[in-house]
Amino acid sequence: MQWNLRMRAAERGVWKSAQMRRMIADAGLEISAGKMSSWWAGTPPTMRLEDLDVLCSVLECTPSDLMSPEPEKVAARRSRGAETVNGDDRRSDASDGGVSPVVAPRFGKPRSEPPL
């Protein structure tokens, strides 16, 4: 996804992250300077729906104004090669009928038992 927060903010006359943070706080969402910096500087790794709702309200936009799909990146990921499972080049996709890859046990690296 392409993150367009700065573009949408600029369209509303907001040029600094501190100003955007104050506007968000006025709307009832207190966020840290670090979180605002990650939103402002690039694509955030995660976004809570409540936070997205406040951003859209403050900027008078929709989520699709803040995010644009990038299907070419998804296609590039697929073409990079098959996923590896325990060193094997096997993958599951629609072209092979949705068959799951063979999963081999990991000897020497046992998983822990679940809590009782």
Results as ranks from 00 to 15, higher is better:
residue 93 D to K: 09
residue 33 A to M: 10
residue 38 S to D: 09
residue 7 M to I: 13
residue 112 S to E: 09
residue 84 T to G: 06
residue 17 S to R: 05
residue 17 S to W: 04
residue 71 P to D: 14
residue 83 E to S: 08
residue 112 S to M: 05
residue 38 S to I: 04
residue 90 R to G: 07
residue 45 P to D: 12
residue 84 T to Y: 13
residue 70 E to M: 14
residue 47 M to Q: 11
residue 29 L to V: 06
residue 35 K to W: 14
residue 39 W to E: 00
residue 23 M to T: 12
residue 20 M to A: 14
residue 42 G to I: 00
residue 31 I to A: 04
residue 46 T to Y: 05
residue 7 M to S: 11
residue 87 G to P: 01
residue 6 R to A: 06
residue 113 E to K: 14
residue 64 S to Y: 11
residue 103 V to P: 01
residue 95 S to W: 14
residue 49 L to D: 13
residue 93 D to I: 04
residue 40 W to I: 00
residue 86 N to S: 07
residue 34 G to L: 03
residue 4 N to F: 11
residue 21 R to G: 02
residue 47 M to K: 10
residue 43 T to H: 07
residue 77 R to G: 05
residue 32 S to P: 02
residue 113 E to I: 09
residue 20 M to R: 12
residue 35 K to F: 08
residue 43 T to C: 04
residue 92 S to H: 07
residue 54 V to P: 03
residue 109 K to G: 06
residue 41 A to Y: 06
residue 98 G to Y: 12
residue 26 D to C: 07
residue 26 D to L: 12
residue 102 V to N: 03
residue 65 D to I: 03
residue 36 M to N: 02
residue 31 I to D: 01
residue 14 V to D: 00
residue 105 P to T: 01
residue 46 T to E: 04
residue 45 P to I: 12
residue 28 G to T: 15
residue 49 L to S: 13
residue 25 A to L: 12
residue 2 Q to P: 02
residue 78 R to H: 06
residue 90 R to M: 15
residue 108 G to I: 02
residue 111 R to C: 04
residue 17 S to D: 09
residue 12 R to A: 04
residue 11 E to I: 02
residue 112 S to Y: 07
residue 63 P to D: 04
residue 77 R to Y: 06
residue 52 L to C: 09
residue 57 S to D: 13
residue 114 P to D: 06
residue 77 R to F: 06
residue 55 L to T: 02
residue 55 L to Y: 01
residue 105 P to V: 01
residue 100 S to K: 14
residue 68 S to E: 11
residue 98 G to C: 11
residue 36 M to H: 01
residue 113 E to F: 04
residue 107 F to T: 12
residue 51 D to M: 09
residue 17 S to L: 03
residue 80 R to Q: 12
residue 87 G to E: 02
residue 54 V to H: 15
residue 77 R to I: 07
residue 18 A to C: 10
residue 22 R to F: 08
residue 105 P to Y: 01
residue 30 E to C: 11
residue 109 K to S: 10
residue 103 V to I: 14
residue 10 A to W: 14
residue 104 A to L: 12
residue 40 W to N: 02
residue 4 N to M: 13
residue 44 P to I: 02
residue 9 A to Q: 01
residue 37 S to Y: 00
residue 55 L to H: 00
residue 33 A to R: 15
residue 57 S to P: 03
residue 69 P to T: 15
residue 108 G to W: 09
residue 110 P to F: 04
residue 101 P to F: 00
residue 37 S to A: 10
residue 98 G to Q: 07
residue 46 T to L: 03
residue 114 P to Q: 07
residue 100 S to G: 08
residue 14 V to H: 02
residue 113 E to S: 08
residue 51 D to E: 15
residue 83 E to V: 05
residue 88 D to R: 15
residue 50 E to C: 11
